[in-house]
Amino acid sequence: MKAGNIEQFKHLSQFRDLKDLNNNMEAFLAEHKKDFTKSELICFKALLRFSVKVVGVSNISISKLLQAISERFGEVSESTFHRMKRKAIKLGILTVYTTHRKNGSQSSNVWVFNRFLNSQTIDTPISDTKQEKVAKNQENIVEQLTPQKTNNLLETNNLSNKRNENVSDNKYLVDKLDGSFTSSRVPVEFRDLVKCFYDDHKTIEELWKVIHIQTYYLSYYSLDDRISLAIDSFKQMVRNIKRGRKIRNIFGYFWGIVEKKLDEEYKSIICEVA
């Protein structure tokens, strides 16, 4: 195969779009993540990051890929990359084509990710469900966070109805739990930042849910990536509010900030591999 611009390898792509690629890679890693070491996974996900201009195809050189990894995660050896490559090929998720220059010397390989999901089926029922949940979440998120109203009759009960009052109080307390009661699914770093401004467990959990939904299909995103995205986005939201921005719905506004940051990241990746 002759070496050339990445555009000439478009015919090797097996995916409709970036979302289709991410769905397949997420499904693959759900089953085979255990087959790779931590360093090998870093190599796998880094190669995936450089396979977006032509979806699922890259011709980045190993040296450039390892340099990009070292700048972000620390040094990873070339032998680690080759171990990842052999495993990925054996598992059927990666095909490697050698290319040659006009003078016959070998050039960079072409890395082609293969489908893991059947292209004749709807890739994942989960993806459709998630899309519905996103829309529903956008519409109902305020209602979900609105504390339930206490019963006025219970508030006027006398001491003879103390037991009923206790039940009402307990219900009220559940709705008013502070940030220390946030679900363990929310990273501590994000929880501790948000509770300085919104010390309510539901608010913190719903803000993190925005991150979870927005990055659901980004299989190359690590937990640290999600935390960094969440913290940067929240800081930007707080900064804008402090500067006088009027916001009716912090969750919808936060969603917009996160979405814009992901769009900017996508454009930067495109530029990197151009």
Rank of each mutant, 00 (worst) to 15 (best):
R101L: 14
K102T: 09
G104A: 01
S105P: 04
Q106I: 08
Q106Y: 00
S107Q: 04
S107E: 10
S108T: 06
N109I: 03
W111A: 05
W111D: 04
W111K: 02
V112F: 00
V112G: 04
V112C: 05
V112T: 00
V112H: 03
R115P: 10
R115G: 03
R115A: 01
F116C: 02
L117P: 01
L117K: 01
L117N: 01
L117D: 00
N118A: 03
N118G: 02
N118Q: 04
S119T: 05
S119F: 05
S119K: 10
Q120Y: 05
T121C: 13
T121L: 15
T121Y: 13
I122M: 07
D123L: 13
D123M: 14
T124G: 07
T124H: 05
P125K: 10
P125N: 12
I126S: 15
S127N: 10
D128V: 12
D128K: 09
T129M: 13
K130C: 06
Q131P: 02
Q131T: 06
E132F: 08
E132A: 10
E132Q: 12
K133E: 11
V134Q: 05
V134R: 05
V134K: 06
V134I: 12
A135S: 12
N137V: 03
N137G: 15
N140G: 10
N140S: 09
I141Q: 08
V142K: 12
E143V: 06
E143D: 14
L145N: 10
T146D: 01
P147D: 00
P147F: 00
Q148Y: 02
Q148L: 06
Q148A: 04
Q148I: 05
Q148F: 02
K149I: 03
K149T: 04
N151I: 09
N152Q: 13
L153Y: 03
E155K: 15
E155I: 10
T156M: 12
N157R: 10
N158Q: 09
N158A: 06
L159C: 11
L159M: 13
S160V: 08
N161C: 04
N161V: 02
R163D: 13
R163V: 06
N164L: 15
N164C: 09
E165K: 15
V167P: 02
V167S: 10
